[in-house]
């Protein structure tokens, strides 16, 4: 019974030297680790940034088949116009204008996201003003169920929806003539409808919903300002 009491009373006297050693060791290991992390961070930072820009560039050229280069543009809400952004810019209101070899704008890639079955799905889609249609879609990030929801990325029948998905502007240039609609699998009759996937209804509907919302805002903004896009800063005014 008295055992615990005894251990307490027989505690060794406070050893300053041993305590200081504990501090010294933990502190020096901490400093060593901190320096190592900062070093690796500094070395890999430019590589990671380059990877991110390259991945985005690839995705943009993927959804705009005729484009060979792309330039990021930032939407300015106050001025209601676009201005050139740096290639590694991030945040809302960014669009990526694709240019062909003759430096003519051939389309605009726009990012959107929406709630899927598991988590947010991030999608990049390519809008061609010439065809007045969405001509390509790529899922940038999704955690949809493998084998079911992730078919929004792979299912050839579903992806066929986005070869020429009609998003024509209405006469006033401020709205879409026909907002994108989601229909049951195999019931697509109009070019602005998206056929769902059996077994992936939630994920495919989420994709259609985010495309509809985003295209209603961005297609009028982009479609009426096509002439303002150039590959360089000049001619922007």
């Amino acid at each position: 019974m008295s055992a615990p009491v005894q251990t307490e009373t027989t505690l060794p006297p406070f050893d300053v030297k041993a305590t200081l050693r504990i501090y010294a060791v933990v502190l020096s290991v901490g400093i060593f680790c901190g320096v190592a992390i900062v070093g690796v961070y500094e070395i890999t930072k430019p590589i990671i940034a380059r990877n991110k820009v390259a991945a985005r560039q690839n995705a943009v050229l993927d959804v705009l088949p005729r484009a060979t280069t792309s330039v990021a543009y930032q939407w300015d809400d106050a001025a209601e116009s676009f201005r050139i952004a740096s290639s590694d810019a991030e945040g809302d209101g960014l669009v990526f204008v694709g240019f062909d070899d003759a430096e003519k704008p051939v389309g605009v890639a726009i990012e959107t996201k929406g709630m899927g079955y598991q988590d947010f799905i991030r999608v990049l889609y390519g809008y061609s003003p010439q065809e007045q249609a969405i001509i390509g879609v790529r899922v940038l990030e999704s955690r949809e169920t493998p084998g079911l929801g992730d078919r929004i990325e792979k299912d050839p029948v579903f992806l066929k929806n986005f070869e020429a998905l009609d998003v024509s502007l209405a006469g006033d240039g401020k709205t879409l003539a026909h907002p994108i609609e989601f229909v049951k699998p195999g019931e697509k009759t109009e070019p602005w409808q998206i056929d769902g996937i059996t077994g992936a209804t939630i994920s495919s509907k989420a994709t259609a919903d985010m495309l509809r919302e985003s295209s209603q805002i961005w297609v009028p903004r982009v479609g009426t300002r096509l002439s303002t896009f150039t590959t360089t800063e000049e001619g922007e005014d």
Binding site: A36, V40, Y41, T44, I47, I48, N51, K52, A55
Partner: peptide, 11 residues
Amino acid sequence: IVDYLIQAISL
């Protein structure tokens, strides 16, 4: 460190 290295190798 591994986390940064993997990001540098493949996003």
